[in-house]
Structures are given as C-alpha cells and as structure tokens.
C-alpha cells in the first residue's frame, strides 16, 4: 500500500478538508507511520471470526411510531446567523 501525496489529497477531499502545503508535508509521514503500525493487525488470524460492531450484545432497539414533541421552528433557527424566511440558509446549490 502506497500512501502518497495524491492519496492523501484524495482522502482529504472526500472528507471535505482542504490541506495546505505545510499540512501535507506534516501529515504525510505521520499518517504513513500510523498506517504501517496498524497494518500489524493482518498478523492475527480472524478466519471465521464475526466482527463486533458493538462491545456488548444489543438487539434492535425499536420504538413505537408515536407523535412526540420536537423543537419549535424558532428554537431550531436560533443557533445560526445563516437563515432567511424561516429556513436555514446555505450556499448556492446550482
């Protein structure tokens, strides 16, 4: 596995982060070192082992489909300055 500048820039783009030149120079060797260390997991035999997505056994937690209380429109809009006519305002979509 080759972790290079191109791959790092691609991963950053997927994660919606723009890295400047200094950050790329700093992060690249660090991430290489970390991923190389993590690769040692491949030494463990996990044939026929099921993954544990949770540490304790949990069954599906379903709730009744009942009406509940939710935030008022004013409250929901109270935490941002980007709003207009009772809507959240975002950047241009098209």
């Amino acid at each position: 596995m080759e972790v290079d500048r191109k791959l790092l820039e691609h991963v950053a783009e997927v994660a919606r982060i723009k890295l400047n030149d200094g950050e790329i120079k700093k992060f690249l060797p660090q991430l290489k070192e970390i991923l190389e260390f993590f690769s040692k997991l491949k030494d463990i035999n996990t044939d026929n082992v099921k993954p544990s997505f949770q540490p304790v056994e949990l069954k599906n937690a379903m709730r009744e489909d009942n009406e509940g209380q939710c935030l008022s429109q004013d409250d929901a809009l109270s935490l941002t300055e980007h709003k207009k006519d009772a809507y959240f305002k975002g950047p241009k979509a098209v």
Binding site: S39, L41, T46, V49, K50, P51, S52
Partner: peptide, 17 residues
C-alpha cells in the same frame, strides 16, 4: 481498504472480548 483495516479491527475486537 475497508476489509483490511476497519472490518479487520472489528474482528480483532471479537477475539479480544
């Protein structure tokens, strides 16, 4: 990369438990 890293770690978690 998902199987080699993420899924592998979840399986090692089972062994650890």
């Amino acid at each position: 990369y998902r199987d080699a890293f993420y899924l592998k770690a979840m399986k090692v978690r089972t062994l650890m438990i």
